[in-house]
Nucleic acid binder design. Structure first.
Length: 593
RNA sequence: GGCCCGGUAGUUCAGCUGGUUAGAACGCUAGCCUGUCACGCUAGAGGUCAUGGGUUCGAGCCCCAUUCGGGUCGCCA
């Protein structure tokens, strides 16, 4: 711009700039008129700066300043000046100085915004999302979006420095049968056929290894047409990478280097390497989760063997095929009955049938099932749980041990939250390893791949691929941070014969496998290097770095729970002409519209 | 698809056991104000109590349905 060409960011000016004539541009945060003296706080992406207008210095200019309203876009030229000693604002980074304005330009006026552009706004989120461009003016979101940029930049520089090539893969690709629901994309030139948006560039990056690219990285959008959560969006970004001639330890080592650099540069935290590794089975038994939060204790305790012969049918039935386990909520005995009842309801949402409890009082044990059990059986449980006076033991029993563990795992976190036992500003990272290859799908009545169908089994479990799928473990690993799955990956199958056995194990006929994955099967016939990799959820990583538990906070234009986007109002209907061109007929009943 | 929570000025909220004209703060508009920075003071405008139906002499409040948001289970290879 010829006029009011910005020389400085407003929020970046300091006392050392005093005496300089500068031009700043931005938005009016606030205008305060005290008669002949007018203060205007100007905001740009770096922060706030106070502009000073004095009628005695320039009456016309002061008059113009008086017309300024919140969110007007202005440019101001003036001299950076020390405030009087008594006028210094210690709350503001620029609080020692102000700009004695000599020229002011109003670029645009602004209507009153639907909500105030303040960091501590408690305005409802749907309104903020409808006016996301205004919400994003808030310093907090400006900082988070800038933080996101830094995380991505650190990832790029680290992996570039370690010989990774950034290679783009297609966004219009092919639907895969396993895994999440695909977003489908029709095309005019292929009536009746659909592209799918990638759930991840998994197959492409493996094929790149086959092509010899050796080390690949991409920061890439992925899409999954599934229900949203506080930490899950249908459109999200992965830091996706793949390496050749590596085993699990190699992949983890490279990624630990990245995490160390990331935590150091973003949060000033020195991570101790190597990170802890915990087999999946141990994570489930100790924490009831495949993404354990290690910031607090309250670990699960197995009492299945103690209750096999007791008089409580709920426990004995569960002990036969499943499990009976508990968590010890230290200091929980003073929890009122009503609150314990709410915990009972809580575990039921995780398919537990109920929650039994023992209160350890000074004068003995009190429990919800004492009439079914001998006192010495009760105290045996308390002893196993290392219970002391004031503790509360919460017990879940079920014929399916997995339900017991996951319900208690969720309960463990719920109790820690309620009792405020989770330390703030600490980070606990670990690898969860040795995931099961398969999990049983009730819906499909067959085994499905827990990770994906290209994941390699553990060498020692290779035989179980055909004989005992329930106990076959994978060369898969997740990086877990503070109870969030921040990323995950695996060593892939590079032997076509093993891949064929894997497809068989998943219940695909040769023909089905050929139809769905023929390109991959073919490619692997021509020399595939051993390879593996992983992918981080960039959004979750930024979320953790920013200290928020809402993924929408770290995405410029996020989607709401229905996967709609409130500002543009997507998705939306399209014109009949567009549908005709795509040979698409809409087939919904009128009561569904 | 299930469960739970919520919707009252532009915004955040209060609104008693169902009872006259629905209030407060912030914001907004106008005026005054020379060291404010959540400026202050004075005055003013601003409401389809989410929508529809029901109960009642009477509904912001009770009931039903719908809708819009949030959390969560299922789902997320």
């Amino acid at each position: 711009m010829k006029e009011f060409n910005r020389t400085d960011y407003a929020g970046a000016l300091r006392a050392c700039d005093v005496g300089r004539t500068v031009t700043v541009c931005g938005w009016v945060q606030r205008a305060r008129r005290l008669g002949g003296l007018t203060f205007v706080t100007l905001r740009d992406r770096t922060g706030l700066l106070q502009l000073n207008f004095n009628a005695e210095r320039d009456a016309a200019l002061s008059e113009l300043a008086g017309t300024l309203r919140t969110e007007f876009v202005i440019g101001a030229t003036g001299v950076v000046t020390h405030r009087g000693e008594s006028a210094v604002n210690h709350e503001m980074p620029t609080g020692e100085i102000e700009l004695y304005v000599t020229a002011l330009k109003v670029f645009t006026r602004a209507e009153t915004t639907p909500f105030e552009i303040l960091d501590d706004t408690d305005c409802a989120e749907n309104l903020r999302l409808k006016y996301r461009y205004l919400d994003l003016r808030r310093q907090r979101l400006q900082n988070t979006i800038a933080l996101r940029h830094r995380v991505a930049a650190i990832a790029r520089s680290y992996f570039y420095d370690n010989g990774f090539l950034e290679i783009e893969t297609p966004v219009l690709t092919k639907s895969t049968p396993e895994g999440a629901r695909d977003y489908l994309v029709p095309s005019r030139v292929h009536p009746g056929k659909f592209y799918a948006l990638p759930q991840s560039p998994q197959q492409y990056k493996q094929l790149l290894m086959l092509s010899g690219f050796d080390r690949y990285i991409q920061i890439v959008k992925c899409f999954r047409d599934e229900d949203l959560r506080a930490d899950r969006q249908p459109e999200f970004t992965q830091i996706d990478l793949e390496m050749s001639f590596v085993d699990e330890e190699d992949v983890r080592a490279v990624n630990e280097g990245f995490l160390k650099k990331l935590f150091k540069e973003v949060r000033g935290i020195d991570l101790e390497l190597p990170l802890q590794c915990m087999p999946w089975k141990e994570a489930m038994e100790r924490f009831g989760s495949d993404k354990p939060d290690l910031r607090f204790g309250m670990e699960l305790c197995n009492i299945t063997d103690l209750v096999g012969g007791c008089g409580f049918k709920v426990f004995t039935d569960a002990a036969e095929t499943g499990g009976v386990r508990l968590i010890n909520v230290d200091g929980g005995a003073k929890m009122p009955r009503k609150e314990i009842d709410s915990l009972v309801e809580f575990v039921k949402t995780y398919r537990a049938k109920g929650l039994a409890w023992i209160k350890v009082n000074e004068d003995g044990l009190q429990s919800s099932f004492s009439k079914f059990m001998k006192p010495e059986e009760l105290s045996a449980i308390a002893t196993r749980a290392n219970a002391k006076a004031g503790d509360l033991l919460l017990i879940v029993a079920d014929p399916k041990d997995l339900i017991v563990m996951t319900a208690l795992g969720a309960l463990r976190i719920e109790c820690a939250k309620r009792l405020d036992r989770i330390p703030k500003d600490t980070y606990k990272l670990l690898w969860v390893t040795d995931f099961p290859m398969f999990e049983w799908s009730e819906e499909d009545q067959r085994f499905t791949a827990m990770h994906h169908p290209f994941t390699a089994p553990k060498d020692e479990d290779m035989a179980l691929l055909d004989t005992d799928r329930a106990h076959c473990r994978a060369k898969a690993y997740d990086i877990v941070i503070n109870g969030y799955e921040a990323g995950g990956g695996s060593i892939r199958i590079h032997d076509p014969e093993v891949q064929e056995r894997m497809f068989q194990a998943l219940g695909f006929t040769k023909e089905e496998a050929e139809e769905r994955f023929g390109h991959l099967i073919n490619a692997f016939r021509y020399g595939a290097p051993p390879h593996g990799g992983m992918a981080y959820g960039l959004d979750r990583l930024v979320m953790l770095m920013a200290g928020t538990d809402n993924i929408r906070d770290v995405i410029a234009f996020p989607k709401i729970q229905t996967a709609a986007e409130l500002m543009m109002n997507s998705p939306d209907v399209v014109e009949q002409k567009q549908l005709d061109e795509l040979s698409i007929a809409i087939n919904i009943r009128s009561d569904e519209v």
